[in-house]
Every structure is written in C-alpha cells, then in structure tokens.
C-alpha cells in the first residue's frame, strides 16, 4: 500500500475525528440535565451550583468551552471525569481493553462459526443442514440481544450453574496486566486455572455478542459461495483433477471471502455497539457500560472521550478492511 494513500487516510481520520468531536460536544450540551446539579444533588443551593459550574468551566460560552476542550485533546488530555476525578484517558484505556477482549472473542466466533456454516450450507445446498443453519441464522439476526443474554445466564449460570454470570475473573485469582486481555495475560503467565476461569467468564458474553454477526456472516458466506461455485474458474479447478476440498477452500472460499471481509468489518462496528448491551447484562467492565453510566451522570468529558475512541476505532477498522481487501484481491492492488 503506497505511502500517499496511507497519508490520505490519516488526513481523513483527522477530519472525521474533528467532526465527531464537534457533534458530540454540541449534542451532549443539548440534552437536558446539568452536571453540577446531578453531582450536588437536588437540594444544593444556588451559590454552590454556580461555584461548581465555574470550576467546571460550564459558565463560559460554548465556543470557548469547545476551544479549551480541543486544545486539551490535542495535547492528549481528555479531561477529568467528574464522577471519579480520575483522568478520562486512563479510565477509558483500561475499559477499552476489556471491550476489545470481548469484541475480539465475538469476532473470532462469528468468523469461524459463520464461515463454516455458510460454506457447508452452500456446498450442501437444500440439505437439512442448509435449511437448519439458515433458519438459525434468521433467528439469530432477529434475536434481541438483551433477552438472549438473560436466557443464557438463566440456563448456564442459574439453572445448571456451569458458567459464571458476571465479570471477567473469579475472586481470588490474580493475573498480571500485560496486554490487558485477561485470557491472554493468564496464558502468558502460565496460570492455567486463571486461564480456564477467564475463558469461562468470556464464553457467555462473547456468544451473546457474536450471535447477530455470526448469523450475518453465515448468510453472506452462503450466498457468496453459491455465486462463486458457478464461476468458470471453479470448473477449471475441477477439470484439473483437484480434490473437492481444495476446490471448495482454495478456489471457491478464497474468492467468496471478499464480500465476507467487508461485512466482518462493518460488523465490528455493530459489535462495539452491541457491546454496550452485552456489557450491561454480564457486568463486563468495558467501555460500553462505562459510556452509559457516564451519560447518566452527564460526565461530559468521559462521554466525549469514549465517542472519540469509538470513532477512531471505526476508522481504523475500515482502514484494516481496505488493507485486507488489497491483500486478498490482486486485481485491486495498485500497480505501476
């Protein structure tokens, strides 16, 4: 990928982030609710309120407030959370890693399960497997995440007590924080009990979060496979005497995967959105839950910081998808 392309994308990123920051800034201040009031409670007297407002800078004009905010952000300062009085950047970082762990796990499930189901459905079109998995996929995309999460908790945690219902790790287990992904860190530390425990904690929320993307990926993979199966070059591959498996994986799936990559990329964004619900259901200490709680408290700095991070992630994912496309499809490789 040429350098000037990368630079162009980075400039895009900056423009998008600027736009997002303005929008979020204005929107937050348009919704009713006064942070000072929320912080001091219903019965605070007017002098106290005014004092806190000026301390938070809320008495200045919107433009001035934004200007100060922008200057700070450019210096890497996302502000201080009014709830916890800890720098927002610090709070976000820890939670971002928790969200990343959950989203990545869901992504892995969606990719493998979805692609496998889609491929088998296409190869065995109109078979029982095909009908069953496409029915499940239909159920999956229309499944309310909240309900599904609660059902899973009821089944596996309450009724059969085989999986934990909340958090990332059981009490009493300790794992160093190297990557911030508990599953990875426990494995790196060679702590097998903690590793298994963290996997158990991850399983239900990841499955919940993966349901919709898995269903989408399965459907896209199936239709894409069906289309590619009829391509002339697949017939050529068969005419060479290649085995079924090679024809399906090397010559069909490899080409059918291109639309799947796009969908996977788009879904990673959806996934981050779905994480808000899933994290709330499973008390997962991630960014989604944090942004909801911050919004409730009108913690402007925290909400703004989270949205900026979400936007950055989305743009980077798009960049990654573009990059994958170039790797996967030689036809769009830029050549001189």
């Amino acid at each position: 990928m040429p350098i000037d392309y990368l630079i162009r994308r980075l400039v895009h990123l900056l423009i998008i982030l600027f736009g997002v920051s303005v929008l979020v800034f204005l929107m937050l201040r348009m919704i009713p609710g006064d942070p000072a009031q929320l912080l001091l409670g219903e019965f605070a007297n007017p002098e106290e309120l005014a004092g806190l407002r000026s301390q938070l800078g809320l008495d200045k004009s919107l433009f001035t407030q934004y200007w100060i905010y922008l200057k700070n952000v450019l210096q890497g300062d996302l502000g201080i959370s009014i709830r916890t009085e800890i720098p927002v950047a610090q709070e976000i970082f820890v939670r971002l890693l928790a969200t990343l762990e959950l989203s990545l796990a869901a992504m892995v499930i969606a990719t493998f399960l979805g692609v496998a189901a889609g491929v088998i459905s296409a190869v065995k079109q109109y078979s029982i497997f095909d009908y069953a998995s496409m029915f499940l996929a239909l159920v999956g995309v229309s499944m309310p995440i909240f309900w599904l999460g609660l059902m899973l908790i009821y089944l596996f945690s309450v009724k059969f007590s085989v999986l934990p219902m909340m958090g990332r790790l059981s009490m009493g287990l300790d794992v160093p924080s190297w990557s911030g992904l508990v599953v990875v860190d426990s494995l790196l530390a060679g702590n097998v009990p903690a590793f298994l425990d963290s996997l158990k904690h991850l399983l239900l929320p990841a499955l919940t979060l993966a349901t919709i993307p898995t269903a989408i990926v399965a459907r896209i993979t199936r239709s894409s496979m069906l289309e590619i199966q009829n391509q002339d070059y697949v017939r050529t591959a068969r005419a060479k005497g290649l085995s079924n498996l090679v024809v399906i994986l090397r010559h069909t799936l490899r080409n059918a995967f291109l639309p799947v990559v796009t969908v996977l990329g788009l879904n990673l964004g959806l996934l981050l959105g779905g994480a808000v619900l899933t994290e709330t259901i499973f008390s997962w200490p991630g960014l989604g839950r944090y942004v909801v709680n911050s919004l409730m408290a009108r913690d402007y700095a925290a909400v703004q910081g989270c949205i900026l991070i979400f936007a950055t992630l989305m743009v980077m994912i798009n960049l990654l998808v573009d990059f994958l496309y170039v790797v996967l499809d030689p036809r769009i490789r830029v050549h001189d």
Partner: peptide, 10 residues
Amino acid sequence: QEPMTSLNPV
C-alpha cells in the same frame, strides 16, 4: 471457451 473467466483471479 471463455479465457477471460476461466482462470482464478486471485
């Protein structure tokens, strides 16, 4: 018959 589509593009 179709050399344009008979080879795998990737």
